[in-house]
């Protein structure tokens, strides 16, 4: 079995967001870069399948030189190969999907694993787009995955319940929290990863379908008020305010 895991390098989720000069992007100063948290579940699932079924796990990331950090980390965790698809087109999900699909096409991957969304851009789109571009099945927001020779069964967070999706391989699976508990890299793994080579390939030339023309911070919320009195009085006051002042009940 051949597994491709797509990884995205994103700002740490605790990052205080500042807008860069120009007003269209994140100010990268002081930003700590990490592997997008959901992608860690995708990689872990790939590694578990490798251990259980003897798969070959390749990780791939679309980006610039610094994205090699997440690839290096994936090698430390146990990925067999890592590939950087060099491109600056990382702002449009369709462009990223095309670069990934162009790479994966014809390489015989049985599974292409993603996090259900990249932290920050929050599109949750690239996995489904790659599935479409490759003409294969998809299951998003997966919390449990079983694969056989040629089929999969996935439990996903659907509409007001857990949906069971069954389909044929190859497939795109996007991981949701709960799928597994990602491992930490061992010292041995980290040392071994330093000696491995990260393959660098120019990402396919694509035209973006959209561009960010402004990045702004949300307006501050107005000063609130604290309610006095004992619990019964506070409860009465609150319901009165919600009904008559805020008009939300």
């Amino acid at each position: 079995m051949k597994i491709l895991v797509a990884l995205k390098q994103v700002p740490d989720t605790e990052t205080k967001i500042k807008v860069a000069a120009g007003g269209t992007s994140l100010d990268p100063a002081d930003v700590k870069w990490i592997t997008s948290p959901y992608d860690e579940y995708a990689l872990e699932e790939g590694l578990r399948l490798k251990e259980a079924k003897g798969a070959e796990v390749t990780t791939v990331s679309v980006g610039e030189e610094k994205a090699k950090d997440v690839l290096r980390n994936s090698l430390a965790l146990g990925a067999d190969n890592a590939v950087l698809l060099k491109s600056t087109e990382t702002g449009d999900p369709l462009a990223v999907a095309k670069i990934l699909a162009a790479y994966a096409e014809g390489k015989g991957f049985d599974l292409v694993l993603f996090g259900n969304k990249g932290f920050g851009s929050d599109n949750g789109a690239v996995g489904a787009m790659v599935a479409e571009l490759l003409g294969i099945s998809q299951a998003n927001l997966v919390t449990k995955l079983e694969v056989s020779e040629s089929t999969f069964r996935a439990e996903r967070e659907g509409d007001g319940g857990t949906e069971v999706v069954e389909g044929t391989l190859p497939a795109v699976i996007t991981a949701q929290r709960g799928l597994n508990e990602p491992r930490y890299a061992s010292l041995k793994g980290i040392m071994a990863a330093k000696k491995k080579t990260i393959e660098e390939v120019d990402g396919a030339a694509v035209t973006a379908a959209m561009a960010v023309s402004a990045l702004t911070l949300p307006p501050a919320r107005p000063e609130g008020r604290k309610l006095d009195g004992d619990a019964a009085t506070q409860a009465q006051t609150l319901l009165g305010l919600l009904r008559d002042e805020a008009k939300v009940l």
Partner: peptide, 9 residues
């Protein structure tokens, strides 16, 4: 934590 204005092409 931020809002992006996105223009389609």
């Amino acid at each position: 934590k931020a809002f992006a204005t996105v223009d389609f092409t």
